[in-house]
Amino acid sequence: MLTISEFGRRTGLSHKALRLYDVSGLLPPAQVDPANGYRFYDEEQLERARRISVLRQLDMPLTKIAEVLAGSDEEALIRLDRWWAAEEATTASRRSTLQYLRDRLSRTGTPGLSPRPVLIRDVPATKIATIRADTDQQSLIGVIVSSTYEISAYLRAAGATLTGESWVIYHGAVTPEAEATVEVCMPFDGLVDPSGPITIRVEPAHREAYCTITMDECVFPRIMLAYDLVIDWVRAAGLPEAGPPREVYLPDCQSIPRDQPAVDIALPIVERNA
């Protein structure tokens, strides 16, 4: 058995960190002396402690570390890669937002949206696998990416056929200051049961108004101009809204050149003859 001081020395973790990991259940000591409360650790806990230390160096939250380290090493690798992909997507989004602001301040680039039509289409009833999450604007991209990875991996393992596109339905206003519920959806064909956070449902058939934007135009707050375009068009046409707004990401949108059409901003509406 190792004292907390020796264990901390060999893992690079402070007494404060080890106490925090004990309270959180992430790394409880192997034994606590009932007489004096001294903590002792087993040598077999060294590897887990070192992994926790490395993950904390990556700024991974404790709750996410617990999730990553649960289960086998193979499962941990999948969860780690999924989390890192979300982190990289969030960083790329922030970089694009920074560039948008720099363009506005320097009066270069295109501050708004170029003229484009708002179109109407009929969407058939569609079977989808979804994950709902509450998020603010800063965490939104990470939630979308990690949820998409989780759903697609589950559907493929279940033998389902993915259509290639994905949706994000906004059940509330996501802002930098406030969280709201978003629903990441992936249409598929096949028989799949719900699992954990993943639910299976059918999105009812509906008619929707939409416009198409590029990946560059997805940058917040520029993307809000596309939402304004669709919502203003729907209201000017006197068409009642029939559901929450959504983003429809075209298949392999990440590989499409950033200045080419890649995402539809859509709003369900009541049919004209209804």
Rank of each mutant, 00 (worst) to 15 (best):
E179C: 07
I256S: 01
D259E: 10
A274W: 09
P176Q: 06
T135A: 10
E74K: 13
R39L: 00
P257L: 03
A70H: 13
R39K: 04
R82D: 09
Q45P: 00
C185T: 03
L62Y: 07
P221M: 05
R121N: 05
L225G: 07
G71K: 11
T181F: 00
I269Q: 02
V174E: 05
T11A: 01
T108P: 00
R121C: 09
W83F: 13
A178W: 09
R107S: 11
P187F: 06
D81I: 08
E6V: 09
I269S: 01
R201F: 08
D252N: 13
D73N: 11
E87N: 01
V270Q: 12
R102I: 15
V54F: 14
I141P: 00
A35K: 10
D264L: 08
Y100H: 12
D136A: 02
A125T: 07
E6R: 12
R56G: 06
Y227W: 10
P34Y: 08
D193C: 04
A274R: 10
L62S: 04
A92D: 14
D59I: 00
L250D: 12
T161I: 14
I52Q: 01
Y149F: 15
A205N: 03
S93Y: 08
T110S: 13
I131V: 11
R82A: 03
D252Q: 11
A242G: 10
S195F: 13
Q45M: 02
R107D: 11
D216N: 15
T175C: 02
L113K: 01
L98P: 08
D216S: 11
H206K: 05
V234M: 02
L140S: 03
I198W: 01
T175H: 01
A180Y: 01
F7Y: 03
L98H: 14
